[in-house]
Structure formats: structure tokens, C-alpha cells
Nucleic acid binder design. Structure first.
Length: 650
RNA sequence: GCUGGCGUAGCUCAACGGCAGAGCAGAGGUUUUGUAAACCUCAGGUUGUAGGUUCGAUUCCUAUCGCCAGCUCCA
């Protein structure tokens, strides 16, 4: 007899040899989702798995990340089955689940066309309808190889040969067999709604020296409704693309003549950037930072001493010669801040030193990876370096984390995920240093009662780090903030401070960025707000719209008053219809429109229209100004709510 | 960088071997307008660039630059 423990802490006793699905019988799932697979002692398995010892069982449904993985993994198999049914010569490579669906790579003589994908999707639907059961078959490595050799699946043979385990498993559905660790859902009919998304080239094992395979992406959901919602989300993401909005709203451009990956900021985009940076600077002053500035180039030797030439050269632009001395465009700001540190003798009383700079750096990126503001060749880091004593580490890190959260919240981000990366295989610094540093990061996180995920071995070679990801309004995750400890540079540059004992000690250096890159952060903001910036960030906050020539002087008077309060306004005095003026202001995503006609001139009021929300009542200009100033101060976007106005009927 | 797709007016797109067009934007004019597009006229192009094939190339071929999707890497 064996005892099974359930997530609600209940226990039941079964005969040894019971299957997972039998053990789940009568257990009420927390959702009305179908049971897909099970997690036994933390490992995902098929429902047909035979249980022979005391275990903890956890049902897997589409609601959990693990459940989705299983679901999408099976979907990838269905995709592969369909592709081979339509194109028998296509050879299988790999087909894993990913964050938002799955893909499968095939060796095929040509790229798949959109027509191919349609044909494949039809076949997928047939396979779902046929409801083939997925059967797990265990083989020894030796026996498995001929199975795939016979099928001409060379990549599968290669994979089997690279597996350490002497026994391998494969899954069969209909006449389709794939090498696979599993687990899977029990039959192809369990997949509810399926969409073949796109095809693209991908290298075998991600290495460009290997042959190019044809990858097909897909996504699936239990219901058609969820699939439709997902597809709407994809459309919405396209609609919010910062490259498209950046052009439409006149924020920035990239020109072929200037060069790829180099951003030209137009007046409106530059205003938004200015507002971001001003806010950033104010916050830094409040939190005890000092500002430094550093040049864009430096002697190449500086980068030799820092070690960047050894480990970062492929991302650096080539050296330039200045009076026969090699100089280098900077890919990082840290060596400069270090030189400032070194410019005088430092006492332990001086520490921590917190030096911040919006430092523009230049990095060589391969042409194929450039992408709008997200991936560029020249960008501005919101950089800071903190030099402190080991004992100050935890406090410093804790205050950086708090600073990060408060800053990102002010930009409208609410959801954070925190990752702690520990020592990788190749690293500098002693075990002792790593231990202390990692413990300091942990205690900072625990001090603030923050839950986090540990990424073992994912730290940078010079020290452990904390990365913070935000989620935008579409639920997409972005990593902006990073806090990295560094033992390497202080060592390489021989940094020291004089301790209470009168002897030199080595400071620890913290590299940190809140926004990451101002360019990239701006891109994220554009997509997060769909270009409709909250009032505090909007390049133009108010547009005054006159009904006719009669209100021109009143409108100019309004403009003067708005400007006097530091508000950014434009007036539309043209002899155009109100509908057109409104349409253009809406398209420009200006938060507030002030409509003025003779009635407003007489009453010395303005009729307010809020972006996308419509009319928001008529009020005295002063009242509006006060409300807007309050809204800007709060960084909110909802101080003035639209009303169904009755006092301006016409 | 690699694989595939795409470069036509400021923008969005037609024409696909035979005189390069539309809408929006722009300029000039008419209209003085009450909450998301008034009307008329005009102007706007070495079809990314350089070669080639052809009687003739925006269209076909080659190279090159750029953009897009993906691979890889990362902020």
C-alpha cells in the first residue's frame, strides 16, 4: 500500500501500482480546467504514470506554468505530425514549449510559405479531431537509435547520442513517433484551439555554423475564446509598436543616412525624454546621489586595464587613432567613475559614494539584431556606481531596490519580478567574497520582504546580481533594472579606502541601473501607454481649440496663462471645423482639449474634453489649471474624470 | 553576421516589361464652423543605390545599403 498526499494536505491510501489519473479520481480541482498531467514530488509526469511509493501529487491544468508547458509541448508534437503528414520529407529537429506557445524546427528543402502553413493548420485540426492517444514508450539508447535511423530522423539520432541516460523515452500518436522526455496530455483531442502562427529560419542548436532549419511557431488554448483573446493581444501589441507610434507622434526617427541603430530625437520625443531625465535627476538628489559626467571616448588602455578588451571587445567599436594614440568609443561608463574615485585618497568616512550619470555609450550590435529603440548602437544608461564597504552592502542594495520600485511605480508599472543570479562557473573573486556578496543581496531582499527567484550560476563573472523585471499593460515582461556587485574592477584598478585601522581596504562596487537604457525604457513606455502618455509625460498637455476667429484673443490669453503655470500647450486657431480640430488633437494623443466659443469667452471659462473620454464639463480656467497641476504632481492620469455634462447643451 | 521577405511622393499603399497613380499630409483659395475627417485648385518622384539583360526596366538578373521576422547576444 502507498500513501498519496494532495495539495490540500489530505492523504489517501492506494494499492501500489495505481496510476496518477486513478489517484486523482474524486479529487476536486481548484479550477474547472481539464486535468492535463500530474506533478509527482515536483516532477511533471503523464497521467498514466504508475505510482509505487509514497508521493505528493499535484494536478496540472492549463492554469499553471508547468501545465501550460505540457499542453504546448503536446501541441508541438501535433504540429510536427501535421507537417510530416503534409510534407513527408520534412525531418524533425526539436519542438519545445516557449513562454507564449511553442515551435517546432524541421529540416526541409525550402522555407514554408503562408499557404503551406494554412495547409498544415488544416491537418492539425484533423489530428485534434482524430483524438489520437499519446503513448509513452521506453527504449534503451541502443534500441532507440535504429527506430529513428529507419525513419531517416538524423537529428533525433544525434540527440539520443548526446543523452546521458541509458534509457530514453518516445511518444507515439497515430503513426507519428517523436523522441521526447514528456510528459504529455493523454490525447490529441485534449487540445482545444490551435493556431499556426508563423515560419522563420533557425539554426540547428542555435549555432550559425550549423544548417538552417525551418521553424514554425504556434500557440494553443483550451478554448477558442482564449485563443481569440490571445490573437487580439498580438494585434494590440502590433498596434502599440513603438516604431510605428514613434513615427506617427513625431517622437523619434532612425535614418539610413545617419546609420542604423542611432536614434534621432525629434522635439516631442526629446521633451518626453527630458521629462523622464528631469524626474530621474530629482529623485537621485533626494536619495543622496551625486552626479558625474564622463567623456564619450578614452584611451584604449583604459579599456585594457578594465578588462573590457578581453571580455567585451566584440561589442566595442573599433579604436580610432588620435595623434597616433589609440582611443576608444565608450561601451560603458564604469571606468570613468573609477578614475574619479581614484583621483583622491578616500577614507572609510567618505563611503558610500553614490555617483550617477546619464551616460551615453556605444556598443557594436550585429545588424540583424537592431530593433527600434529596444536594441540600438548608441544609448544612454541611467547608470550609477556605488562604492562602499562590505558591511554597507546590504543596506545599499536594499535602498537601491526601494528606489527602483518607487521610480518604476511613478511610471505606471505595478508588477515586478525579482531574480537573484549567483556565481557562474567561470568567475573572479574568492568564494568568501561571493558568499558575502550573495548573502548581502539575499538579506537585502529579505529585509524588504520581497519574494524572488534564484537563477543559480546566472551571475556575471565579476559578481552576483539582482535583476528586476516589470510587466506592461499587455502583461509582457521587460528587464530594465539591474543591480550588480563587482569585485573585479576595484581589484583591477587597485581601488582602496583608508579604514579606521589606518590601512587601505578594497571597496565593493555596485553597478546599477533603474531604467536600463533611456532609449529602451522610452520604447517600453510608448508601448505601455500606446503613445497616450499621462499628463506629466505628454509632450503637449493641452490643446486650445477655437470655434472661430472671434475667440482668437481669448485663446491667446489662455495660452499665456497656461505657459505661466509651466504647462505645455498649443492652440489651434485655424478656420477649421471643430470636429477636425478635435480629431487631430485626439490623433496626437493630447491629454486635454479646451474648446472655446463665444459662451466661454463671455463666462471666462473653458469647455474641457479629455482624450478618448469626451467632454468633461465646463469650468473656470483657473480651476482647470489647478486640477491639471495636481494631476501632474501625482503622476496620475485620472484627476479630471469625464462627466455627462448638462451645462453646455447646445 | 546568417536565412527568408520587403524597399514606389513626407506618410499609408496601387501599378509588376510599354507615358508612375490614389488617399492623407503640404501650399493657395472658398467656408467662420459647438466635441473624432467641409469644399476647390496646385505642387510633390533619377521607383533605396550601382551595374546588367532588353527596342524599352518600378517590373527580370547581380551586387550593395536599409527595413521586417527569426536565429545568437543582451540593456
Amino acid at each position: 500500500m502507498i500513501e498519496i498526499k494532495y495539495p490540500d494536505n489530505s492523504r489517501r491510501v492506494y494499492e501500489s501500482g495505481v496510476t496518477a489519473i486513478e489517484a486523482m479520481k474524486g479529487y476536486t480541482l481548484p479550477t474547472d480546467r481539464a486535468l492535463l498531467a500530474a506533478e509527482i514530488d515536483g516532477v511533471a509526469v503523464d497521467l498514466s504514470t504508475v505510482l509505487t511509493s509514497n508521493v505528493a501529487i499535484n494536478p496540472l491544468t492549463f492554469d499553471s506554468a508547468l501545465g501550460k508547458e505540457v499542453y504546448w509541448h503536446t501541441s508541438a508534437h501535433i504540429l510536427a505530425q501535421a507537417v510530416q503528414a503534409v510534407f513527408p520529407s520534412a525531418k524533425l529537429a526539436i519542438g519545445p514549449p516557449i513562454d507564449t506557445g511553442f515551435y517546432y524546427d524541421f529540416d526541409f528543402e525550402r522555407p514554408f510559405t503562408p499557404e503551406d502553413l494554412t495547409r498544415i493548420e488544416e491537418e492539425v485540426h484533423l489530428i485534434m479531431k482524430e483524438d489520437y492517444p499519446l503513448k509513452r514508450i521506453e527504449f534503451s539508447q541502443q534500441d532507440a537509435i535504429p527506430v529513428f535511423q529507419k525513419r531517416g530522423e538524423g537529428y533525433k539520432v544525434e540527440i539520443i547520442e548526446s543523452i546521458d541516460d541509458p534509457s530514453v523515452s518516445m511518444y507515439q500518436q497515430g503513426n507519428f513517433i517523436d523522441l521526447c522526455r514528456g510528459p504529455h496530455v493523454s490525447s490529441t483531442g485534449q487540445i482545444g484551439a490551435f493556431k499556426v502562427l508563423s515560419g522563420a529560419g533557425a539554426y540547428w542548436r542555435g549555432d550559425e555554423r550549423n544548417p538552417m532549419l525551418q521553424r514554425i511557431y504556434g500557440v494553443s488554448f483550451p478554448t477558442q475564446k482564449e485563443l481569440d483573446q490571445h490573437l487580439i493581444l498580438l494585434e494590440e501589441a502590433k498596434r502599440r509598436d513603438h516604431r510605428k507610434l514613434g513615427k506617427e507622434l513625431g517622437l523619434f526617427s532612425v535614418s539610413e543616412e545617419t546609420g542604423p541603430g542611432l536614434i534621432l530625437w525629434h522635439p516631442k520625443g526629446a521633451m518626453v525624454r527630458h521629462l523622464i531625465e528631469t524626474f530621474w535627476r530629482e529623485q537621485h538628489i533626494k536619495r543622496g546621489y551625486e552626479f558625474v559626467y564622463s567623456p564619450h571616448i578614452a584611451r584604449r588602455n583604459l579599456w585594457k586595464q578594465s578588462g573590457h578588451l578581453d571580455f567585451y571587445q566584440e561589442n566595442m567599436f573599433a579604436a580610432m587613432s588620435v595623434e597616433n594614440n589609440p582611443y576608444q568609443l565608450k561601451p560603458m561608463n564604469c571606468p570613468f567613475h573609477i578614475m574619479i574615485y581614484k583621483s583622491s585618497l578616500r577614507s572609510y568616512r567618505d563611503l558610500p559614494l553614490r555617483w550617477a550619470e546619464l551616460g551615453t555609450v556605444y556598443r557594436y550590435e550585429r545588424s540583424g539584431v537592431l530593433h527600434g529603440l529596444f536594441r540600438v548602437r548608441g544609448f544612454t544608461q541611467d547608470d550609477a556606481h556605488i562604492f562602499c564597504r562590505p558591511a554597507q552592502l546590504a543596506d545599499e542594495v536594499a535602498s537601491i531596490i526601494k528606489f527602483t520600485f518607487s521610480t518604476l511605480r511613478r511610471f505606471g508599472f505595478e508588477y515586478f519580478e525579482i531574480f537573484l543570479s549567483t556565481r557562474p562557473d567561470h568567475a573572479v573573486g574568492s568564494d568568501e567574497d561571493w558568499q558575502h556578496a550573495t548573502d548581502s543581496l539575499k538579506s537585502a531582499l529579505e529585509l524588504l520582504d520581497i519574494s524572488y527567484t534564484t537563477d543559480p550560476g546566472e551571475g556575471v563573472f565579476y559578481g552576483p546580481k539582482i535583476d528586476i523585471k516589470i510587466r506592461d499593460v499587455l502583461g509582457r515582461a521587460w528587464q530594465c533594472s539591474t543591480i550588480q556587485l563587482d569585485f573585479n574592477l576595484p581589484l583591477r584598478f587597485g581601488l582602496s579606502f583608508i579604514g579606521p585601522d589606518g590601512k587601505p581596504h578594497q571597496p565593493i562596487m555596485i553597478h546599477r541601473a533603474l531604467l536600463g537604457s533611456v532609449e529602451r525604457f522610452m520604447g517600453i513606455l510608448i508601448e505601455h501607454f500606446a503613445g497616450a502618455f499621462p499628463s506629466w509625460l505628454a509632450p503637449i498637455q493641452v490643446k486650445v481649440l477655437t470655434l472661430g476667429e472671434a475667440q482668437t484673443s481669448y485663446a491667446n490669453d489662455i495660452m499665456l496663462q497656461l505657459a505661466g503655470h509651466g504647462l505645455r500647450a498649443e492652440a489651434d486657431l485655424r478656420s477649421e471645423k471643430m470636429n477636425l480640430k478635435i480629431r487631430e488633437a485626439e490623433t496626437a494623443k493630447i491629454p486635454y482639449m479646451l474648446v472655446v466659443g463665444d459662451k466661454e469667452v463671455t463666462a471666462r471659462t473653458v469647455s474641457i474634453r479629455k482624450r478618448t473620454k469626451g467632454q468633461a464639463g465646463t469650468m473656470k480656467l483657473d480651476t482647470f489649471i489647478e486640477m491639471l497641476k495636481e494631476e501632474i504632481l501625482e503622476h496620475s492620469s485620472s484627476a479630471i474624470t469625464p462627466t455627462l455634462s448638462t451645462n453646455n447643451s447646445n
